[in-house]
Nucleic acid binder design. Structure first.
Lengths: 344, 344
DNA sequence: TTGTAGGCGTTATCAT
DNA sequence: ATGATAACGCCTACAA
């Protein structure tokens, strides 16, 4: 049952049917009503989206390209909060959300790409190859990294990390601070970072800015950065964090850090869980700070001391930009310190 | 730059270009190579998805229609785990995921619907109106409810709830068990359920089956169902659960339940957090059981005693069915008891 | 207010 | 192995 069939059936032209669905003001209300009623009766579901999108050039689909796998992105509190912000706005504007991953088999991404009216690229910089595969003049907003010629959305990682680390170091004297980084090394490394490792550049990852903030605070408190141990985790999940955290917690008492500056709440929560299992007192034996402000860190006791970033607002902003509801220039979102009980 | 432009540019026919991209065996390797090279040089990104989908009738897009809002679904551990299972399979099969919500402004859903090759409908029964708007013979899989003429995927809610409640009642004698339901009343009710309330039918919600399981176990242990207090929460989030749980925990000692049979882990975890804040001992003062087996309940101390449903497997199965990788008949997935420390 | 016709960019069926 | 051509279903000037 197509529009043309319906037109023939009703003895009117295809244009009239089209107008009945898309431009009510272009025909008499009576006729329109009759058309809609007959359409329903005959089982015509309205204009076909595939054909309509070809004809108009727009699909009302916005694609979000995620740096991580879909599986990870949907389970991670931060990225799913981001997505929910995006979804909320798209939804209210009559658009729909297509989820793509930069990790996808390449051809699929390319294939589906030309379907979307715009792209929100979230997370790390995707490969140049992937970038080239996007429609040339596509609307595009980058989140948490920069793309030449397109607006981006960032969070003030460095100052907020400075501020929270400074707080942690001020609230009680600490002997052995350490840093647990998130995907910071050029080569995969799920454990201690030693001098041989090379770190990703600030262009490629926001965690570099977080590190800079931590470092600045440590220097302010007269620590020698060379002597601050650093670990790295490859993925922001309990399973991947746990072995690294265990390695840290199982150090001899004299070496075990008494302050962990963690680049994410997930890392800090993993440390919290494992430390509790070992009978360490929080914050006396071990002080923890996180980053993100995810709900899970606040709906427990002790609550995480952390930096809250408004991921859903980030998503809403990205969506509004891509839909042209917001001026298309880069934005920097602020964060908020959340003082829980893991560091007091 | 379209396929036709490229054909003209290279002095070959459009069919040949199309074949170069889609059916390598239909032309000489040399020509194909030249075409691909020239395409890249001239900035032709390959066949346009909109046009291709119109022509072939397939978009390689699978839509998931969620009963709840996208915002809720993306933040809830259970549904996002389901989605990640779906995404995993679609991804590996070169398909892509379109997220729709039954709560969406109606017309948008209808509009986008005809774009998808198939539908996975998740959660409660959507309105008949919505259903009618889907393409007539569309591939469709229902998850957690039934649709005539289409396969569905269920979890064994009733037996597993019987088993876990039976366990809870067996492990230590309890005087005052109570049930905390999830969206079970016909009229919204975020608080105590009293006899006036009417409950949704089993057709409309799986929580009815969970209740039946709890009831069976209570009867086995000689409780009078009339005397078992029930509460209801309207949404599976901390914010919405909290006031209801507070109402329960703040009852006078003699009335406060000593066992809460909760229909979800989120509800049980909310109770756990709030009980801990009040200094109640778990499980001595209050025993808790949940449902779902979400990670958050297991990465903490005490761990939740609960029923684990494999949401991601549910998603994978739904996706495989919709892609025809799995026979299209209804399936019932089993669950697993997880014995944590909240009920021992 | 309604009808006509061209084309959106492909792919598939034929021929050659 | 390659080319010509007719759809796919719709939208929108433009004409009536």
């Amino acid at each position: 049952m197509t529009l043309k069939d319906l037109a023939r059936e009703l003895g009117v032209s295809t244009a009239t049917i089209s107008n009945a669905f898309n431009r009510p003001d272009q025909l008499s209300p009576g006729l329109r009503e009759r058309i809609l009623a007959e359409a329903k009766r005959l089982g015509y579901r309205g204009p076909d989206a595939k054909a309509r999108s070809l004809r108009t050039g727009r699909s009302r689909i916005i694609a979000v390209i995620l740096a991580e796998s879909l599986t990870y992105s949907l389970n991670d509190a931060v990225s799913s909060e981001f997505l929910s912000g995006v979804a909320e706005v798209l939804d209210s504007q009559g658009h729909t959300l297509l989820l793509l991953s930069a990790r996808q088999v390449n051809c699929q991404l390319v294939d589906s790409a030309s379907m979307a009216d715009g792209f929100i690229v979230y997370g790390l910089m995707p490969s140049a190859e992937l970038f080239d595969s996007l429609p040339l003049h596509a609307a595009l907003v980058a989140v948490d990294f920069n793309v030449a010629g397109h607006p981006s959305i960032h969070v003030d990682n460095e100052p907020s990390c400075f501020e929270i680390a400074d707080h942690a170091l001020s609230v009680a004297p600490r002997k052995r601070p350490a840093i647990v980084n998130l995907r910071l090394t050029a080569e995969p490394c799920n454990g201690r970072i030693d001098p041989q490792h090379t770190l990703l550049s600030a262009e490629l990852t926001i965690t570099r800015s977080r590190l800079a903030g931590f470092h600045a605070a440590l220097e302010k408190h007269d620590f020698d950065l060379e002597r601050i141990p650093m670990w790295n985790v490859e993925e922001n999940t309990f399973e991947v964090c746990a072995p690294v955290i265990e390695e840290i917690l199982d150090l001899p008492d004299a070496e075990r850090p008494d302050l962990l500056l963690c680049m994410s709440d997930r890392i800090a929560l993993t440390a919290l869980t494992l430390a509790e299992q070992r009978g360490l007192r929080i914050p006396d034996d071990l002080c923890l700070i996180g980053f993100d402000g995810i709900a899970e860190g606040q709906y427990r006791a002790p609550r995480l001391t952390t930096v809250r970033q408004e991921s859903s607002e980030k998503g809403r902003l990205a969506a509004r930009m891509i839909l042209g509801l917001e001026p298309s220039h880069s934005r920097l979102l602020t964060t908020e310190m959340m003082l829980g009980e893991t560091c007091s």
